[in-house]
Amino acid sequence: MPRTRLATVLAALLLAIAGVLLSAAPASAHDELLSTDPADGAALEAAPAEITLTFSGDIASDEGATEIAVTDAEGTDLLDGSPIVVDNTVTQTLVPGTGEITVLWKVVSSDGHPISGQFGFTVAAASAQPSASASPTESVSAEPSASAEPSASATATTAPASDDTTFGQAWPWVIGGIVVIGLAGAVLYLLVSRARREKALAEARDAGSGPTSER
């Protein structure tokens, strides 16, 4: 009997402990974030219109129980309205943003405990809008191309000016050449005149010395 009673007490104790553990397990297991859209670390070409968070259990839909903060790299708020909670999903609409986007969230899980976290993604700068204006710029550039002929005529009219400048630069050399030629002619004339005078004097001396020697 004592052994049977002891076994019964131990069995009842084990059942009680198991019941406590089983009842406490769901209460201690908080819901967790399963996925996000966009995913954490995603690189997007265009800004998403909204983000969606999916949890492992239903989220409290009471007012103020769910809080979402979405900002860009400069800290600009990108929220557009309040978050919408449906069962285990939270959806938040956004205004467009680029660069690094950071999402902070806090919800109340099904066990009544608040849980929070964050994730982020990047959005490339919009380059499609400037490319749409590329065709007007091409048409504008095509019109000035027709004015290439006036520019050619302009260069043609400026050509004589460059000739005048060249002639003006050569003019001092022309004057210098004339002066040098004149000086050379004058020197040559003096040399020729001097040679003629010396020759005349020599002839005169020879003529005068002839009669003197006969006497």
Rank of each mutant, 00 (worst) to 15 (best):
T71P: 02
E45D: 15
P83K: 00
A60G: 13
T76I: 05
P48G: 10
D87N: 10
A11H: 05
L44H: 06
A73M: 09
A24E: 11
A47G: 06
S82Q: 07
D72F: 14
S23F: 12
T52I: 11
I59E: 01
A60H: 06
D40P: 10
D77M: 12
G19K: 10
G19V: 11
G75P: 07
D37A: 11
T71M: 05
A42R: 11
N88E: 14
V85M: 01
I51E: 00
L34K: 12
P38C: 14
T66N: 04
S28W: 08
A18D: 06
N88L: 13
A43K: 12
A42Q: 14
E50P: 12
L53A: 15
A25E: 01
L44D: 04
G41T: 12
F55G: 02
T54P: 06
L22C: 05
L53Y: 11
T36I: 11
P26V: 01
P48H: 14
A73I: 09
A43T: 11
L15C: 10
V90D: 00
D80E: 09
D37I: 07
E74W: 08
A43W: 09
T89S: 03
T89M: 02
V70E: 03
A16G: 03
V85P: 00
A24N: 09
D72N: 15
T54D: 15
T66Q: 06
S35L: 06
L44V: 07
S35T: 06
L22G: 03
E74V: 14
A12C: 03
V85W: 00
V90R: 00
L44G: 07
F55Y: 09
T36L: 11
D80R: 07
E45Y: 15
S23R: 13
A39P: 13
L34T: 14
H30M: 09
T52K: 10
S23N: 13
D77E: 13
D37V: 08
T66A: 08
D40A: 13
Q92M: 04
L78T: 01
L13I: 03
A46C: 07
A42P: 11
T66S: 10
A16L: 04
L79Y: 07
G81Y: 02
I68G: 01
D77F: 10
N88M: 13
A12V: 02
S82A: 10
S28N: 07
A46N: 12
T54G: 10
L13A: 02
P48A: 13
G41L: 12
I59H: 02
D87F: 13
S61C: 01
A11G: 04
A39Y: 15
A29H: 09
S35C: 04
T76S: 03
L44Y: 07
V86I: 13
G19D: 09
V86Q: 07
D37K: 05
G64I: 05
A16W: 03
V20H: 11
D77C: 10
E63Y: 10
V86F: 08
L15A: 12
